[in-house]
Computed example of a mutant assay.
Amino acid sequence: MKADEARPGHGVRLIQKVSSGRAFAKVAPHVVPALDRAVHRLTRGKVLLSARMLPGVILTTTGAKSGLPRRTPLACMPEGDGTWLLIGSNFGRPGHPAWTANLLAHPDAEISWKGRDIAVRARLLEGEEREEAWAAALRFWPPYAAYQARVERRIRLFRLTRVNA
C-alpha cells in the first residue's frame, strides 16, 4: 500500500487543523496512547483508534535505560515496499519521544500491524534520505510541519524494515 492510499479521506482537513494546535499537543500524548493501548488489547490487536486519523502500529522496543519491553502506539506511514516510516514528532512537544531513544539504543523491535506481529529493524534516517522521507511525510500528514516549527530539535525519522524470521 502506498502512503497516499493509506491516508484517510473524509474530514482530513479538520482533523489536521485540530491536531496542529498547541491544545491538542498538550492533551493528546496523555489520552491517545492510553485509549489505543486499551482498544488494541481488547480487540486482540485488530483495532487502533488513532488509525482513524492515520495508519498506526504498536511498537515494542527495548528500553534504552531499563532494558525492559516498552509498547507504544504510534502513527506510521506505510511505504509501498513493505517498510514503515515512523516520525518522532511527539505532537510538537520539546523533547524527543522516549521510543526514539529506545530505537537508537536497540534497533531490533517488533510492530503489531493490522493484528500481525512483525519483527523489524529500525534505522535513523539522515541526509538526503531523511529529506526525501520528510517531504513524503509532509505530503502524507501536513501537521508535521507545525510540529517541527514549534520545536528547536530536529524531528527524528526512522525507517522500519522487516526482519526475515
Rank of each mutant, 00 (worst) to 15 (best):
M1P: 10
D4A: 11
R7F: 06
G9K: 14
H10D: 05
G11S: 12
R13H: 10
V18R: 02
V18K: 01
S20H: 06
G21Y: 03
G21E: 03
R22L: 14
A25I: 08
V27C: 09
A28R: 05
P29A: 11
V31Y: 10
V32P: 01
P33W: 10
P33D: 10
L35P: 04
L35K: 04
D36P: 09
D36F: 05
D36Q: 07
R37T: 09
V39Q: 05
V39M: 11
H40R: 12
H40L: 15
R41E: 11
T43S: 15
T43K: 10
R44V: 12
G45K: 06
K46F: 07
L48H: 13
L48S: 05
L49P: 13
S50Q: 15
S50A: 06
A51F: 04
R52C: 09
L54P: 03
G56N: 03
I58T: 14
L59H: 02
T62E: 11
K65E: 13
L68H: 12
T72N: 13
T72Q: 04
P73G: 08
L74T: 02
L74N: 03
C76D: 01
M77H: 01
P78N: 08
P78G: 08
E79C: 13
E79D: 14
G82T: 08
G82I: 06
T83C: 13
L85P: 00
L85M: 12
I87W: 00
N90E: 04
G92D: 03
R93H: 07
A98Q: 13
A101H: 14
L103W: 00
A105S: 12
D108F: 06
A109V: 07
I111R: 00
W113K: 01
G115T: 11
R116H: 14
I118F: 08
R121W: 00
R123D: 00
L124A: 10
E126V: 13
E129L: 06
E129W: 02
E132W: 02
A133F: 07
W134M: 04
A135S: 14
A137T: 06
L138P: 00
L138V: 14
R139T: 10
A145L: 07
Y147C: 02
Q148L: 06
Q148V: 06
Q148F: 07
A149M: 04
R150Q: 12
V151H: 05
R154Y: 01
R154K: 15
R154G: 07
R156D: 11
R156G: 00
L157T: 03
R159Q: 12
